[in-house]
């Protein structure tokens, strides 16, 4: 083991990690914003509404992310005249845009499926109770269904966040200098394969545990009503009726 190379290249690896986190964050925020409405549309009984959403989810879950990245990045190049006509080439020219776009659509598809399942898992009784109180449509979704569904989706969604974070390592193949990209440049020069990839791997691991820690905190905060009261009154726990 050559520890000097690890020390020397650490600042560069940190820069790469910054880009990795930035791309992950952007894709997550936009993917989430897409997934919530898409999940609701996916559950629409209207035959003009749900099939396109279903097709979108099927495509992005059914093809490898690597293929999707190649398709958006090199595929866009093939349609350059058309994209230029609509003024979109300025975006597609940038590897950064292509990477964030692909990852956003990919995570949106997976998250849509997670939310669809969670929405369907909202207990029927709670929906009926809300309807009995006169809530319907958007009000019902906003007050009852979505908050409950998001809470139910949290464990599965934290997995998706971790998967997405690790999937960003693929963007190095379209010239971006994320953590993997930086590591590959250093290895190409020094051939210190183990030292550099182990360091990069540990950095991914540390951030992954950070992400999981945040989700554990959020889950804990959102599940206060399901825990025993500090005074030990077990009957207050609706999920544990028999103490």
């Amino acid at each position: 083991m050559d520890f000097q190379i690890i020390v020397d290249s650490f600042p560069k690896l940190l820069e790469g990690m910054a880009l990795t986190i930035e791309i992950t964050g952007l894709a997550l925020i936009m993917g989430f914003a897409l997934a919530v409405p898409l999940a609701l549309l996916r559950l629409s009984p209207n035959p003009l509404v749900w099939p396109p959403v279903y097709a979108f989810v099927l495509f992005f879950r059914g093809t490898p992310l690597l293929v999707q990245i190649f398709l958006v990045y090199y595929g866009a190049g093939q349609f350059r005249p058309l994209l230029q006509e609509y003024g979109l080439w300025a975006y597609f020219r940038e590897a950064y845009f292509c990477a964030v776009l692909t990852l956003t659509l990919n995570t949106a598809a997976y998250t849509t499926e997670i939310f669809r399942g969670a929405i369907q898992a909202v207990p029927h009784g709670e929906v009926e109770a809300a309807r009995a109180c006169g809530m319907s449509g958007w009000l019902l979704n906003r007050r009852i269904v979505l908050p409950k569904a998001l809470r139910l989706a949290l464990p599965a969604y934290s997995n998706e966040v971790v998967f997405l974070f690790q999937s960003t390592s693929l963007v190095s193949i379209i010239t971006l200098m994320d953590l993997t990209g930086v590591a590959r440049v250093i290895v190409a020069r020094s051939f210190d394969v183990y030292e550099i990839y182990i360091t990069a791997g540990l950095m991914y691991l540390a951030v992954t545990y950070g992400i999981l820690g945040i989700f554990r905190q959020v889950e804990f905060r959102l599940s206060g009503h399901t825990r025993e009261r500090p005074d030990g009154d077990a009957t207050a726990d609706p999920l544990k009726p028999f103490g």
Partner: peptide, 14 residues
């Protein structure tokens, strides 16, 4: 990763 990909991006104007 390959020279082919670099050539492709040259042709694409990137």
């Amino acid at each position: 990763a390959t020279q082919d990909e670099a050539n492709l991006d040259l042709a694409n104007g990137r």
